[in-house]
Nucleic acid binder design. Structure first.
Lengths: 221, 221
DNA sequence: AAAAACCTTACGGGAAACCGTAAGGTTTTT
DNA sequence: AAAAACCTTACGGTTTCCCGTAAGGTTTTT
């Protein structure tokens, strides 16, 4: 089993829970932090001391407070760490159950596990640790569909950006101008209308307001 | 100090954290559940056995799963409990930091404490338990402003409902019809336009979409 | 290389939202 | 009780959104 594990979550109570799992797995050396930057420092330090961590378990969202941070989300830190230490195993432990997120981190950035906080969260986390130790990946059951290639959702970055600009109060004409400015295509008012129409149908929205509300609720923007 | 405490949170790891606080406060009898309905049953049972709980600590949001529930949120349960057992002390322990929620539960339903999960969450929870035991109320520092009467925001239930209907995809004309139907005043299209205009100015929104996005981000709807 | 399918753009008409003005009603002030 | 302040509603004009059609361009299929 893993020898040295680092846990990072801004909520102390969550850290407690995770540590109790590690204890039950008889992992001797476990540390925990409440800031991404602290996690990063500890991992780098351990690496330099030639006593690297085997496993890093982290939340994704960290509430901002007075302390200025380089990494403000677990996501950003994971991307950076996987670049520098590809061998470090990383498991995400988050309430965030957005399929987009899961796909992005697992497929796009070789994260080793993604466990959804929930009633069964700690049990799943235990399974995840075991699986990752066996060089497998683990994803919470309710999120497995996220990785099946069928479920492509057919909604891309352009769509997301479009809706985000809408939600920022830009009119469709302003969005058109904005896209022309950035040489992003399609940029015509007509195309934007078309795309929004497609999205309205897709999300069963009555109008643009409704669309933004739905997509916000889904956490896509 | 309290003798008998019940903790309710759908996340096991959070329950663990809260129980550790209770232990440090030398509270002997502490139980925990993961469903509102279970909490309700336990409280009623204890009452019948003449060994009632002194304190109930609960989360607000409970993820739905296969189990059919009568109470699907901590909020609903609190309202019901406070009606039946006004003397039962209740502390909310939630990530939800929406001022409206706090005001609603503390002023509207005599909840005894409201602690925001966060880095300092467990420390605050300890303070809250102490305060509530001394027959005081406790609210996390970052939420105190919610209760100061000044900060009335001048935005009332009508405004909230109006924006909520908008976000549900109703046109202003449909909202007008809806209000007329329910004999809610003002209901004319013109008045609705006026009210929305006021809200747009108040929230510095460019248009209705922007307004809904802002208000959703603030957690008011 | 031609055909088909698809994407981007333009345009026009109708609907809804936005904005100012004004009339009539209600509540508060004096 | 009159005056003032405020609220609700109506209406007209402008802008933006919504929706269909059509033309021209690009990519994929055959």
């Amino acid at each position: 089993m893993f020898q040295k594990v680092l846990v990072s979550d801004d909520l102390e109570c969550t850290n407690e829970g995770v540590l109790s799992v590690l204890k039950s797995l008889k992992i001797k050396h476990a540390e925990h932090v409440q800031y991404c930057d602290d996690a990063c420092l500890k991992i780098k330090r351990a690496q330099l001391d030639l006593e690297p961590f085997d496993l890093f378990i982290t939340d994704l969202s960290f509430v901002k407070d007075h302390r200025e941070q380089k990494y403000t989300s677990g996501e950003a830190l994971i991307i950076a760490l996987k670049k520098e230490y590809p061998k470090l195993k990383i498991i995400v432990y988050s309430v965030d159950d957005r399929l987009q997120k899961v796909r992005f981190l697992m497929n796009g950035h070789q994260t080793n596990g993604y466990v959804c906080k929930g009633r069964q969260g700690l049990v799943e986390l235990e399974n995840a640790i075991q699986a990752v130790f066996n060089n497998e990946t683990y994803v919470s059951p309710q999120l497995r569909q996220a990785l099946s290639p069928k479920n492509d959702q057919e909604i891309d970055d352009y769509d997301i950006l479009l809706i985000k600009l809408l939600s920022n109060g830009l009119s469709q004409e302003e969005i058109s101008a904005h896209f022309k400015n950035e040489n992003r295509s399609p940029s015509s008012l007509s195309s934007i209308e078309k795309r929004l129409n497609k999205l309205r149908i897709q999300f069963k929205a009555n109008n643009a307001i409704h669309l933004v509300a739905i997509v916000k609720d889904l956490g896509l923007i």
